[in-house]
Design a protein around this nucleic acid. Structure first.
Lengths: 226, 226
DNA sequence: GCTTGACAGCTTACAGCGTAAGGGCAGAGC
DNA sequence: GCTCTGCCCTTACGCTGTAAGCTGTCAAGC
């Protein structure tokens, strides 16, 4: 009776910025970014829309915070490793996974220009790994740009695919194929029928091919630098 | 007097889907995608918002059409060239230019799943180039995925930069740097002060480094295949 | 020359968006 | 006891995309 919260009412854990962010991420994961409105988000956390503004400056701030939680999910390269290649490879795979889990994220990274702490920590750890492995500043910049471009671009293309499962993708490719005469776009038709529509094809498998291409190139560049 | 249009009023060239699309692209280029509303677009072509729906099914259809005009701006690889490397290199550079000209485009490619004719023609021409150069179907798929991932990802990062000119970028990097203690993110600070903030630095120059990395890798892969 | 149909463009209206402004109310400090 | 602080609420505004129905004009058929 003397304690802080009144006893005869469910305490309704006081809302925090963190709980708002997590609910926003869950909502966007489940129903897509357009479904993330302030009213629906309020409903999800049991509060009116306007009450969210106690914990979040505005919607842009909310999106910034969501992006930062995604970055927080990406494994950092170990700070002591001398083996930059496996560190970068694992980070890339972890990043792709995070971006595939949160399909809305990649479409957001463009416009957000105020990085959060997890984002900054991430960038710093990656640069630390490359620099201590012997990359010059210039080469580290090249490497970071090349790797992240590839990762983000792959995530973007993967997200563009209409559905998650390879089955669904195949079904849609087939219906698209049926729409235009096969002789008008022969190579596209060939690719669709002889490769993409084959059972077991999964676009996600393409990721490591291109990733290793980039890593091979960086390896040659860094050894040529020494 | 006998002609079709009445003589004493400016004929106001009849609106077409194409004119609507071009105005939409111009508007998005100038003021950004959020500024592209049906009402403003109508104003730009001298018509009320609802009249646009005569030429465009809905806003999604409008965006699809805009994406297709961007693809139409990308140079196709020459259909007869045996030199796939320079063809792909030129195509990649042309694609980056187009995406840099229309910064809104990259944020849209994700969600658009109904490609227009220019888009299909583009994909087909790229595959044709690779296949006639001796790429197997699998390797052509790998190559296309790797190249486009890199191109799109680079465009995405480039678009994320706050302003077009290197000067503006430097100014903003400096203000960001000032916000956090340099010793908390030492490698980030190092990169900023010793590389990005140097006069003459332009992120766009990073493009060819990563591109050649990917092309080198593909060259090795295709020669190993034979 | 008159009628008729087709159709580009206009007007009105609606639900849903982000959020500015201000009110109520519980718990903390005196 | 009081007042202050800080969540949370209600109301309201201007904006969005677009459904529904109207108006005006041009072309064809008689």
């Amino acid at each position: 009776m003397t304690a802080g919260t009144s006893p005869d009412r469910p305490p309704r854990a006081p809302l925090t910025r963190d709980r708002v962010l997590q609910a926003a991420v869950a909502l966007a994961d489940a129903d897509g970014l357009p479904a993330l409105t302030m009213r629906r988000l309020g409903e999800a956390v049991g509060v009116e829309a306007m009450s969210l503004y106690t914990h979040v400056a505005n919607k842009s701030d909310l999106l910034d915070g969501m992006i930062d939680t995604v970055f927080a999910e990406i494994d950092l390269p170990p700070s002591d490793s001398r083996d930059w290649r496996t560190s970068m490879r694992l980070r890339a795979i972890s990043a792709r996974r995070a971006l595939a889990r949160h399909r809305w994220a990649i479409g957001l990274m463009e416009s957000r220009t105020t990085p959060g702490p997890a984002t900054l920590r991430h960038h710093d750890a990656v640069l630390a790994c490359l620099r201590t492995a012997g990359f010059s500043i210039e080469l580290a910049a090249h490497a970071y740009s090349a790797l992240d471009s590839y990762i983000y671009g792959f995530a973007l293309q993967e997200r563009g695919l209409p559905f998650d499962s390879p089955d669904e993708t195949a079904r849609l490719a087939q219906s698209m194929l049926a729409q235009f005469p096969a002789d008008q776009y022969p190579y596209l038709a060939e690719m669709a029928t002889h490769h993409v529509l084959r059972p077991g094809y999964d676009y996600a498998d393409e990721f490591t091919f291109g990733l290793d291409l980039v890593l091979d190139g960086l390896e040659r560049a860094v050894s040529g630098q020494r």
